[in-house]
Amino acid sequence: MLSFVFRRLLYVIPIALAVAAVCFSLVHLAPGDPLTAVIPPDAPQEVVAAITRAYGMDRPLVVQFGSWLGRAVQGDLGVSVATGRPVLIDIQRALGNTLLLASAAAVLGFGIGILLGVVAAVHIGGPIDRVATAIAITGVSIPHYWLGLLLVVVFSVYLDWLPSMGAASGGSANWGWNWDSLRYLVLPAVTMSFIPMGIVTRTVRAAVAEILHSEFVMALRAKGMGSARIALHVGKNAAPTIMAVMGLQFGYLLGGSILVETVFSWPGTGYLLNTAIFQRDIPLLQGVILVLAMFFVGLNLLVDLLQSFADPRIRRG
C-alpha cells in the first residue's frame, strides 16, 4: 500500500512537468506577438527591443521555460501586462471564488446525482428509473448559460428573491458564512450543478445496477446479510468508478465555466481567463492555466489514492 502511494506520488513529477511545458508553449504557439498588448504599434525599434529584453523574450524558449518554471515553483507567476500587479494575487482571489462556487455546485450536483442514481439502479427498468434518467438527461443537455439566464429572470427579475450578479454585496473580499453572502451563491451554484448532477446520476445508476446484478450480491443474500450490509458492499465496489467521474467533474467545475461566471459576473477563474484572453495578458493567462492544470493533476492523484483504498486490485498495477 505505502509503496503504491509512493510510486503514485513519483508519477506526478513528470506529469506536472509536461503540463507546465504545455501551458508555457501554448501561449507561444498562439498567433501574434505576445507583446503587442504592451507595445504601441508606432513604437520605435529600440523601444521594442528594450521591452522584449525586459520581458526576457529575446532568449531561447528552453531558457525562458526554465526560468519561468523556476520562478513559478517559488510562487512568482510574473506581473500582469495589463494591470502591473503580480499575477498570483489575482489568481488567488479568483481561485478562492471559483473553489467556493465549484464546491457548492459539487455538493448539490453530486449529492442529488448519487441519490437519483442509487434510486434508479434499485428500481431499474421501472417508472422511478425512467423519471430519474429523464432528470439526468435534462441536466446534461440543458445549455448552461440558458439555464443561468432563465434562473435570473425567474428568481431575480420576476420574483426578486435572489441577486443576479457578483459574489457578495461588498465585493468578493467581504464574503462570509452568512445569508447575505450565501444568497449570491445560490443561482450560479444551482446552474453549475446540473451537468455534474446528470453525469453522476448516470454513472451511479450504471455502476450500482451492474453490481446489484453480480453473483456476489446473491451470495451475500445467501449468507443472510441484511440490506444495510449489502449496501456497504455495493458502495465499496461502486466507489472507484464514481470517484473517478466525480474527480473529473470537480476538475471541470474548478476550471470555472466562463459562460456561467460571465452570466452571473462571478469573479472566478473562468472570468479571469476570459479577461486574460481578451486583454492578451500572457503572464496572467499562463498563470491561470498553470494553476488550474496543477489542481487537475492534484485532483487526479487524490482520486487515484482514494480508489486504491477502496479496491485492492488497483494497488497491484
Binding site: 451470495a219 445467501a222 458492499h233 485492492p312
Partner: peptide, 16 residues
Amino acid sequence: VAMIFQEPMLAFDPVF
C-alpha cells in the same frame, strides 16, 4: 442452509 457457488471468483466480493 448455506450455499456454495459454481465460480468462487464471482461469489466473493472482490474488495473485501
